[in-house]
Design a protein around this nucleic acid. Structure first.
Lengths: 344, 344
DNA sequence: TATTAGCACTCTACGGGATTGAGTGCTAAA
DNA sequence: TTTAGCACTCAATCCCGTAGAGTGCTAATA
């Protein structure tokens, strides 16, 4: 992968040209638009080499050349100097009129922000119930042997889940359980709580045991079902932006894309994966096995809430994306969302 | 609007043919496919009359004819005998594996059910917070002078809203407010509660007054903002089905459609309107001013929860829809959802 | 030896007929 | 009143021919 300086320059020129025009780039174009003091014929020779190396591809014989996924990867890793977000755009993010009546709305609005500023589609993965630290929990008795478990995080995120009993519990009993759990579980995630409760039940034959046992059994069933389903919620905004991208000006392609969008669990898998890494991640085309689509890239970053990484957000667009502006945009948005969550 | 029996038959034949093939219908087709004992020439004369009356239109001179919105309206109002749902499809609805971990999920899954069985796009409008009768309410204190108001309905629907105080309230004080409201407000909607509280504050100088006053003021601001934003939540499922409909096999049309889908407040207005009426409603093409799109119809029905109408759901598809199956499908789904909510 | 000019070649996109086929409207006969 | 017959219309399709963009190769050049 050791290209000569000149080859790199030409590759960069081709990528940049393609990013801005969406048209295959020919040798003449390169010499005309980027003053490299080199003739088209020379460029052609080098382009041919780059094609052999897998950086470029030709849609057909008499067309110009187009960067491959490999080229984008190389470009992002070695040739891109991501400037921090220009002051003006940072202002735009901060001034974006985010409605945040409740947490759901905040998530949804953030996708719109991402979409509006990038002109692509914005996605946000909400914090996962199982990994959230709750401040408060509460059980509300409903009719028909059912109760609702409600969990509130420090950040004001509310999760709830239905629990079905086969015997009737009074609201009083439920309140005793809540009080006990609230006291015992401060600062723990749902996942931790679950194991802690089981442990308690082993150790300590306290008076809550029978109820708790029953309760936790049911709860486990309920949350297991949730985890199967992907658990974390995915928000998508600005889908229609996809129709403005010349790369996808094709009915069949678009259909494929929208079908992929409906398989949210795959996207969630990918976003989940991105939580591991620090900073902004870029997934190009078929680099990831969960949202593998020709010509499509994701730029994602994890965001924090109360210190911990709790979710991810990002942008879906063509691989032909102006990464130098999109990357800092996603980065900045992730930080802003993190701040909004933490100060709630 | 008094058509002869024969004209009606021909109109019906044309509409049915167009619904099943999506191709403009010519006079020969009518005589061939529907045995009316009449020659193409005669059919042509009648078709010409129907066109003058505004029931048919020609895409171009040498094409067959296509029903207008007026024709669909006439068809639905006077010629459609909606059979109740065939046993088999009712089974399909009842057996559909609806995940319902929480209320959100139930709503989302219902859109998928509608979409899967109709092969169009399913929509569900969730119950509006302001008009829901709550069983339980709760205020949870967060950091930074904020509190979260949580409301739980009989059906297990959870709504929440952030409230920002400029002074710090203890959790104890919040609990006293909750207890008071819970006691005072049983069986009232949020909207009713609001006015009731204001009335109480006038009448009665009880010990909660100062806090309550403060609280209600803030709360009002918060909920006002919510109403502005449309308040009710809209769920959409099966968007990609739109790509399978030959009527919309056009990039620009599709773009227009998806932009319309993103303006959820307009759709919500329409669905809100449909809550007034009993039974299944059909909105054809430009009949409604909120989701006015050439060639698109909505079939919607309101659903009940605990006796009252609380929301609406339905299907969006081409005007060229097999109404005789879609209408009972929507109807049945609305009833099933109502039952699921009420028995929660 | 590396670069470049020149040229033949390839392939797509576009536009202009010509053709086909579906369907109509009109007229005259039944 | 209905119908057969016929001329007419129009979109869709196919079939070129041409223009244009771009390449690869070769031979000349610095």
């Amino acid at each position: 992968m050791d290209l000569s300086e000149r080859s790199r320059e030409i590759l960069r020129a081709i990528i940049q040209s393609y990013i801005s025009t969406a048209e295959p780039v020919g040798s003449r174009t390169v010499t005309k638009r980027y003053n490299l003091g080199i003739s088209p014929a020379t460029v052609r020779n080098i382009m041919s080499d780059l094609e052999d190396l897998g950086f470029l591809a030709q849609p057909h014989t008499s067309a110009g050349r187009v960067p491959t996924d490999k080229a984008y990867r190389f470009y992002i890793d070695t040739m891109l100097d991501v400037k921090s977000l220009p002051r003006q755009q940072e202002e735009e993010i901060l001034n974006y009129p985010l409605r945040r009546g409740d947490f759901h709305q905040l998530m949804q609005e953030t996708t719109k922000l991402l979409s509006a500023l990038s002109h692509y589609t914005g996605i946000v993965m909400a914090p996962k119930p199982a990994e959230t630290v709750y401040r408060h929990m509460e059980f509300v008795r409903l009719t028909g042997g059912r109760a609702l478990a409600i969990f509130v995080s420090n950040a004001g995120i509310v999760h709830n889940r239905m629990i079905v009993f086969d015997e009737d519990l009074t609201q009083k009993e439920l309140e005793r359980i809540s009080a006990f759990l609230n006291h015992e579980m401060a600062g723990k995630t749902l996942r931790d709580m679950r194991s802690r409760v089981f442990q308690l039940m082993e150790d300590d034959k306290n008076k809550y045991t029978r109820l708790l046992m029953k309760f936790m059994k049911l709860w486990q069933d309920a949350s297991y079902e949730g985890e199967e389903a992907g658990e974390a919620e995915l928000f998508v905004g600005g889908l229609s932006e996809m129709f403005n991208i010349p790369d996808f000006r094709d009915y069949e392609k678009m259909k494929e894309l929208f079908i992929a969008f409906e398989e949210k669990h795959k996207l969630l898998k990918l976003l989940d994966l991105a939580m591991e890494a620090e900073g902004v991640q870029v997934y190009i085309g078929s680099e990831n096995k969960y949202f593998e689509m020709q010509g499509i890239s994701l730029v994602v970053a994890s965001y924090r809430g109360e210190g911990n990484v709790v979710g991810t957000l990002g942008v879906i667009g063509p691989s032909r994306m102006p990464y130098n502006t999109v990357i800092p945009l996603v980065d900045c948005t992730a930080r802003v969302l993190g701040r909004l969550i933490s100060e709630r």
